[in-house]
Write a protein that binds this DNA or RNA. Structure first.
Length: 505
RNA sequence: GCCCCCAUCGUCUAGAGGCCUAGGACGCCACCCUUUCAAGGUGGAGAUCAGGGGUUCGAAUCCCCUUGGGGGCACCA
């Protein structure tokens, strides 16, 4: 039988990094096995589910390149797949029908206990240091008793009978697992009093109906797996193979959460993490290829992936390592690709500067292209492009007199150097060509003639024209700036320095 | 409280009884390269393999216990 596995997120929040990892492992496993990867939206929590979250999930998966074979929407097309619909709220009839069957077979029963009663039970159990469980008040009601309650207008939930036994299964990640059903909290509610289905029930009904062969999901579902197995059995369905993935952890080793970590995929995307890095990093968080290579693209991961090699202990999400890997993938992008991905980040940065009241010049395609070799290897995240090169597009850069003077120099020397450098650039460099190669020799010569360290001269110029001490290579920077702007900024810096000097002299 | 899972450098991991005086990567430190910042290169510090018992000629690797951590036990998913 060919492999079918699914990613089943609920749209109660933006696509979570942990969900991405689960989706990725499902995808890798399905592709590796030549099986199907199915996306199912678990939106039965009406109170918390929102369409924009569903959109965020679909967008995120598309962006990562984790395309699904069946699901609510495929690559912008309408839903597709023979086991649809793929949104649970569109599958209510299926659940109702399945519940009906269980009721008929007395594998489930209506329960009339009020939430208040259940709450009181739970409190009592807690006080008696008992594990919380349903006491079974409605488990053996006679037909008349049920009718009486119905007559009172009490809306019943439907409970699934959980018999006493040890349920065992062989988890692909954890091996043999056995759980006593008596520790699971008693008979399970599968339908709310309004008739809507609950998670454990929908999972079993859907996985059965969608012919899922492998359930690959987070470890938080491990203890609940017997419930699903019992339900599969009651439904007369085959029991899929399970693989429970280790949790992704906060730095304090608790389950990764919004409170303590940045969990939304979209947030990483907005910071300029590239899909290659996110996929690569997450693949290696809990799985390893067994070799010492660690930079893999999606297709390479598919070739190598194996659930056997999934780690069983939880893994702390290490942003530093992600950033390193992101830099690796940014550098591996083709120039065209890099340009296309980086530009929106620069544009956005400049827009922000504009709204902050600064005068900004719009970058031209050609000058951005020229910038690529200078910046591509300097970005840990794409969003860093703004800070790196915005001085090229700002009408005025703020130059601090303090920064302008190199460590070994004083104000006088700096002033002299900037004026001299300006002269050299104005007189010796052709306005037409103005290339990095022709800038360097005369400026080095200048430093030598005056007995300055070239580095000091260059630093003074750098700060003068960019307002920063860390920039792309100086001569390329001057070229990017252009002759006119370079001269202008040297002038202005000289004024700033002279102005700062004046009061003290 | 009960049940389940987990346990190798700070972090991600290699290791499926002898190849381990435990390997790689991130991070950290130093040096090299260098006009700054990165990138890159070289080297270094960093794990008595949580602790204790077994099994075995031999254990990070198998078993048991302890400890620690995590997860689960909803008319949430």
């Amino acid at each position: 039988m060919s492999v079918r596995c699914r990613f089943a997120p609920s749209p109660t929040g933006p696509l979570h990094i942990g969900g991405v990892r689960t989706a990725l492992y499902n995808y890798l496993f399905a592709r590796k096995q030549g099986g199907a990867f199915i996306l199912r939206i678990e939106d039965t929590d009406v109170a918390r589910s929102r369409v924009e979250f569903e959109r965020d999930i679909l967008t995120g998966l598309h962006w990562l390149g984790l395309e699904w074979d069946e699901g609510p929407e495929v690559a912008g097309l309408a839903a597709r797949g023979a086991y649809g619909p793929y949104r649970q709220m569109e599958r209510l009839a299926l659940y109702r029908e399945a519940a009906e069957r269980l009721l008929e077979g007395d594998l489930a029963y209506p329960c009339y206990c009020s939430p208040e009663q259940l709450d009181a039970d739970r409190k009592a159990q807690e006080a008696a240091r008992q594990p919380p469980h349903y006491v079974g008040r409605c488990a053996r009601l006679s037909a008349q008793e049920r009718r009486a309650r119905e007559a009172e207008g009490i809306k019943a939930v439907v409970r699934f009978r959980v018999g006493a036994e040890r349920v065992a299964f062989d988890d692909l990640v954890r091996g043999h697992v056995e759980i006593d059903t008596r520790t699971m909290g008693g008979d399970l509610i599968i339908l709310r009093s309004d008739g809507s289905p609950l998670y454990h029930f929908t999972v079993a009904v859907d996985d059965a109906q969608m012919a899922i062969t492998h359930v690959v999901r987070g470890e938080e579902h491990l203890s609940n797996t017997p419930k699903h197995i019992l339900l599969f059995r009651a439904l007369g369905a085959d029991i899929p193979t399970f693989a429970h993935l280790p949790l992704i952890l906060n730095p304090d080793r608790t389950k990764m959460s919004k409170r303590k970590s940045q969990t939304a995929l979209s947030a990483y995307r907005e910071e300029g993490f590239v899909r290659e890095a996110l996929v690569n990093y997450l693949a290696l968080l809990g799985w390893s290829s067994g070799t010492e290579e660690e930079l893999f693209r999606l297709e390479e991961l598919v070739e190598r992936f194996d659930l056997d090699r999934v780690q069983s202990g939880g893994a702390v999400f290490d942003r530093e390592r992600l950033e390193w890997m992101n830099g690796q993938w940014i550098r591996r992008l083709s120039q065209e690709e890099f340009l296309a991905r980086m530009t929106p980040f620069l544009v956005r940065h400049l827009e922000r500067r504009t709204s902050a009241g600064e005068r900004v010049r719009q970058p031209e395609e050609a000058e951005l292209r020229a910038l690529v070799p200078l910046v591509q290897e300097r970005l840990p995240v794409l969003a860093a492009i703004g800070e790196l090169v915005d001085f090229l597009f700002l009408e005025r850069v703020a130059v601090e007199p303090g920064q302008l003077v190199p460590k070994r120099w004083d104000q006088r020397t700096t002033l002299e150097a900037l004026e001299a450098a300006r002269g050299v650039i104005r007189d010796e460099i052709g306005p037409v060509t103005f290339e990095a190669d022709e800038l360097e020799p005369p400026l080095r010569r200048l430093a030598e003639e005056r007995g300055w360290k070239a580095g000091d001269l260059f630093m003074a110029i750098r700060v003068a024209v960019t307002g920063r001490t860390a920039t792309p290579p100086l001569f390329d920077t001057l070229v990017a700036l252009g002759r006119e702007r370079t001269l202008e900024r040297l002038d202005r810096a000289t004024d700033v320095l002279a102005g700062a000097a004046a009061p003290t002299q």
